[in-house]
Simulated assay, not measured.
Amino acid sequence: MRALAEFIMRGRMQAIVVVAGCAALPMLFWLSAAAGSLVLLRRGLNDALGVLVWAVLPALVWWYFGDPRTLLVLLGSFGLALLLRNQSSWSRVMLCSVGLGLLYAWALGMVFGEPIAALATELQKVLPDMLSDAYQQLSVDEQARLGALLAPVLTGLLAGLLQITTLLSLMLGRYWQALLYNPGGFGLEFRSLRFSALPAMVLLMGMLLGPSLGVQVAMLAPLCSVPLVFAGIALVHGLVAKNRMSRFWLVGLYVTLVLFMQLIYPLLAVVAIVDSLFDFRGRASRDDDAGPANGEG
Rank of each mutant, 00 (worst) to 15 (best):
M261F: 14
V240Y: 05
L209R: 08
R286E: 14
A105I: 01
D141F: 04
L82A: 07
S169R: 05
V126T: 12
A221I: 01
V271A: 15
S77T: 11
L168D: 03
V111E: 00
E114S: 05
S32R: 09
A221T: 12
G11R: 03
M205V: 11
Q163H: 03
F278Y: 14
M207S: 07
V215C: 08
D279F: 12
R281W: 08
F112T: 00
L40I: 01
P222V: 12
L100D: 02
V111F: 00
G295R: 09
F186R: 05
L45W: 14
L146T: 06
V270T: 13
F248C: 06
F78A: 11
V56T: 10
V61P: 01
A134C: 00
V226N: 09
V61K: 06
Y175W: 14
R191N: 13
A200K: 05
L228Y: 09
L40K: 09
C96L: 15
V39C: 15
F195D: 03
L45Y: 15
F29H: 14
R174H: 05
G214D: 05
S97A: 15
L267R: 00
G252T: 07
P68H: 05
C22F: 15
V19D: 08
L102F: 05
M9R: 13
V226Q: 03
L170T: 03
S225K: 09
D141G: 06
L49P: 01
A33C: 07
C96R: 13
L161W: 10
P115R: 03
L41V: 10
M219C: 12
L25R: 05
S246L: 06
P183A: 02
R145M: 11
S88Q: 14
T121R: 14
L100N: 04
G101H: 09
Q262N: 07
D141K: 00
D67Y: 15
L131R: 06
L4P: 10
L223E: 05
I164D: 02
G66W: 10
G101I: 05
L253N: 11
N294L: 12
M27E: 13
S88E: 14
L209W: 06
A197W: 11
M245V: 08
V202G: 08
L60E: 07
G238I: 09
V56S: 11
M94C: 13
R42K: 14
S169H: 08
L268G: 02
V271G: 07
D275I: 02
K125Q: 10
M171V: 00
G21S: 04
L267M: 11
